[in-house]
Design a protein around this nucleic acid. Structure first.
Lengths: 205, 205
DNA sequence: GTCGAACGTGAGCAAATACTCGCGTCGAAG
DNA sequence: CTTCGACGCGAGTATTTGCTCACGTTCGAC
């Protein structure tokens, strides 16, 4: 292998054809990730699947990691968009209603590309620039804490910081398990109901 | 790299010195995993750290994956042993008491080698023979379901199968989050209390 | 039409890495 | 003491893979 981690800056696509090329490359990366896994996702293979020269790939992406980072970022932006569309309904909602909204928003977001989401979780290592992307949902910490504070009259919580991590961890864990072991449950109402019960009962018991 | 996935069977250590060699290799693997991560855990590096010839390594381990598999198996055996030591106290316990026992058993097990545990979770890919080891806690499914059935008089659960996955996922998720973002909490009582509340309130709400 | 810049190409390099093989050493059974 | 198999060694091989570079092509401004 050549020198590890080339830092050399790459071109930014300016003309239409090169912007399309970048798009084709990212789609190919996702495709390869799905079919061959992270280890099989080599730069040469991505270029081949994209029907693009390996040299062109390296004009816009400095290394393999940056490819996967961009694909994950794109995916997470989609998730955020789907969730954001639901969060309007939060204003002035009771605790139970708010939880329902949040859970439904989360589940609908996960239905966007569950297979790809699973590959990210199972195979993409939590290393370097990729690590930050995995910890994305840890970024919700202040939001959850604030939300708990806003509903403090309806919530029985001793330690708000601890409750925040427990909530995030628990929901994230259930989602991960379902994604891997019972993916079809994403389409069923039961999962949402159980998640709501998990959250509400923990907060109000 | 040589031919992928050599299936050739390896020697089983019979004399004392070779059994020690295998032990040294496994300890070195754990050490390298901790310090250099999974990607940096090459067979050559493991042999070097172990102070052992690369050839000797390949006499007892057919490939890199088998090394990591053995290290994870060893670790999981330790966890099981720690947990098993606590599970005597389960007989005839009430639901709340049983949950307390289970949570404490789990937390004590996690305190064995949390750093290593974290590396397994964060970096070891869920691929091939390693995948099964990651899904270890999914193996608790029938036990949890049976346990729910045994306490059905104290538990308000609609769908026992769904509840099982929610429980396993939630606990696993909280543990993962704590291990990564708040490792010091493993030593504090608060975490156990919150976990108990999460489980008990979900089951009895 | 012309010219310079952006774009696209793919053969091929350099480093890394999983793994083998031939040879020397040690241990223990007789 | 001899012998034989288990043990241990590490230089070396086959292959992969991330990445570069010299060259040809297309685009768009003038």
């Amino acid at each position: 292998m050549a020198s590890r981690r080339p830092v050399s800056p790459r071109k930014t696509p300016s003309q239409a054809r090169s912007r399309e090329l970048v798009d084709v490359l990212l789609k190919a990366t996702a495709r390869v990730l799905l079919r061959e896994g992270y280890e099989g996702c080599t730069t040469n293979r991505v270029a081949e699947v994209a029907g693009v020269s390996i040299g062109s790939l390296y004009q816009y992406f400095p290394n393999k990691e940056s490819l996967v980072v961009r694909v994950m970022e794109r995916h997470q932006e989609k998730l955020r968009a789907v969730m954001a569309a639901h969060l309007e309904a939060l204003h002035g909602a009771t605790l139970a209603a708010a939880v329902k909204v949040l859970v439904q928003a989360l589940l609908e977001a996960l239905r966007v590309e569950p297979k790809l989401h699973r590959v990210f979780r199972e195979q993409v290592p939590r290393i370097g620039a990729l690590k930050a992307l995995h910890d994305q949902n840890a970024a919700y910490e202040p939001l959850v804490t604030a939300w708990l504070e806003a509903h403090q009259d309806q919530v029985k919580v001793v330690d708000r910081a601890a409750a925040t991590w427990v909530l995030i961890g628990a929901v994230d864990g259930v989602v991960a398990r379902v994604l891997v072991d019972r993916p079809t449950w994403l389409e069923e109402a039961r999962l949402g109901l159980e998640l709501e019960r998990l959250i509400v009962s923990y907060l109000t018991a």
